[in-house]
Amino acid sequence: MNKEIVIKTDKLTKRFGDFIAVNEISFEVYKGEIFGFLGANGAGKTTAMKMLIGISKPSSGNAAIAGYDVYKQTELIKRNIGYMSQKFSLYEDLTIKENIQLFGGIYGLSDDQIKTKGESLIEKLGLQDEADKLVVSLPLGWKQKLAFSIAILHQPKIVFLDEPTGGVDPITRRQFWDMIYEAADNGITVFVTTHYMDEAEYCHRVSIMVDGVIQALDSPEGLKMRYNAQSMEEVFLMLARGAKRSD
């Protein structure tokens, strides 16, 4: 099978003074894949992700996102990705509709597109009654689903999710992953970090970062086999236990 590569990094490194946050990571992510990016706190996941989405300049190494260079073509990268951060980052003092209009507009959707896509989004999330309410009044789980839907509103090639399900109940997490699968089926590549090992099992492939280095990269089945483990949790503990850094 000829797989199209959408993310490719080559010895990508980020230093802060003497501290090497991300140390020569090299990996590839394929189109339509759900790629789990795991690691303990302080392993360098968020720093690595910030380089990939073009808001942090790498210290050395190369990376191409959707075919664009992370040094020179950050604006083109931004046009082709969606991003949902650890911190909830919709505007809480705007309504659901207003948030949709804002982000749709920023990503260059036409008024018609905003209207039809916005309506179907609201309908899909079952938020018809809340559409004109301020986002601040929504429960966390709904906010996260809304944030994800808005992050993929403009049909990006890749969507980056930084711990999207932190603090969310198991039922909503399950629903959230249904949405991720649906996005992947529609050809959107999903790059996700998480601390929940059950979620790691849902990914097509996962990488595990320890102290700024990618220690392992394979499908969950492959990893469990290699480390002779029952679950991803066991694999993770085995690898992360050797870590010298933590928060």
Partner: peptide
């Protein structure tokens, strides 16, 4: 402080 600026920074706005 709220973190919304990050969402704008990853967007293509100039």
């Amino acid at each position: 402080e709220v973190g919304t600026i990050e969402q704008l920074n990853v967007s293509p706005i100039k």
